[in-house]
């Protein structure tokens, strides 16, 4: 394993810190993120509430920690659900060619023509709950990217002499897939997934911010910002906190993805 570049190390550090906050925060805060003490409405940070309390007197620390965990986990599941089928379909298309490839490319182009937001809206109308439409919408809109990259790279790799050589040496398709193709694709797809992770965090909080994703009282970074926006004059810090966490998560993902190497 080569050492990570300084920028990517910083990104990794940010993500690990946020994950730690999301996983350890609820335990640290010791409070129920939905427990309201109206008398403590908009309490400033202090000994009672380390990060203050929101307009309903709920612990900000507990809510932020829960929201961070929710965002990162939902983003990770979404990215995995887009990346794994996308990559496998991309390889399948490059491998089989012909009508298989034609059909898959057509499907990918059709998804690409549909705005991702519209997909979430459509699903929100039909799918039950608040998590499922968000997850399905983002995964269904996201796989295309992995499909296209995997297909382009796999068809390049499959045409290379080393794959032909492996076949001539008696290796079967399983070997070509697992030992030759995937290791060749992984570095690029890893970068893509890190970017995708950042976009997913942003998309989840954006959709929740405009009331389409996860609704109150569940603590979510986007919906918390919406809830606290009316109190921006009295307690500007409270609005900034969830927004800052979104910023850090997205920045962390993008730094981790690293710069395109020249």
């Amino acid at each position: 394993m080569r050492a990570l570049a300084p920028g990517r190390r910083l990104g990794l550090l940010l993500i690990v810190a946020l994950l730690g906050f999301g996983l350890l925060g609820p335990w640290l805060a010791g409070a129920d993120p939905a427990h309201q003490i109206l008398a403590d409405s908009l309490a400033p940070p202090g000994t009672d509430y380390w990060l203050g309390a929101d307009h309903l007197g709920r612990s900000m620390l507990a809510r932020l920690a829960h929201a961070t965990r929710l965002s990162l986990l939902l983003a990770a599941v979404t990215v995995a659900s887009a990346a794994i089928p996308g990559t496998l379909l991309g390889i399948l298309a490059a491998w089989r060619g012909g009508w298989v490839e034609g059909g898959l490319v057509l499907a990918a182009d059709a998804v690409l023509a549909l705005p991702g937001l519209l997909l979430v809206l459509l699903l929100a109308a039909f799918a039950p709950g608040e998590f499922l439409p968000l997850y399905l919408g983002l995964a269904l809109a996201g796989w295309v990217e992995y499909f296209r990259v995997a297909r382009a790279m796999a068809s390049g790799l499959l045409a290379r002499p080393h794959v032909e050589a492996a076949r001539l040496l008696g290796f079967g398709p399983g070997y070509v897939l697992w030992r030759l193709l995937l290791p060749g694709l992984l570095p690029t797809l890893g970068v893509l997934a890190a970017f995708g992770m950042g976009s997913a965090v942003l998309a989840i909080s954006t959709l929740s911010f405009i009331g389409l994703g996860i609704h109150p009282p569940t603590a979510e970074l986007g919906s918390m910002t919406t809830e606290l926006l009316p109190y921006a004059y009295e307690a500007p810090l409270m609005v900034l906190m969830p927004a800052a966490l979104v910023f850090m998560a997205v920045l962390g993902c993008h730094l981790l993805a690293g710069q395109a190497r020249g």
Partner: peptide, 19 residues
């Protein structure tokens, strides 16, 4: 079939770069 082999013009391209 694998007892019929091939040698390539560009040796580096005949090996997986990560192996």
């Amino acid at each position: 079939p694998w007892r019929f082999g091939k040698l390539y013009q560009d040796p580096p391209s005949a090996f997986a770069p990560h192996q």
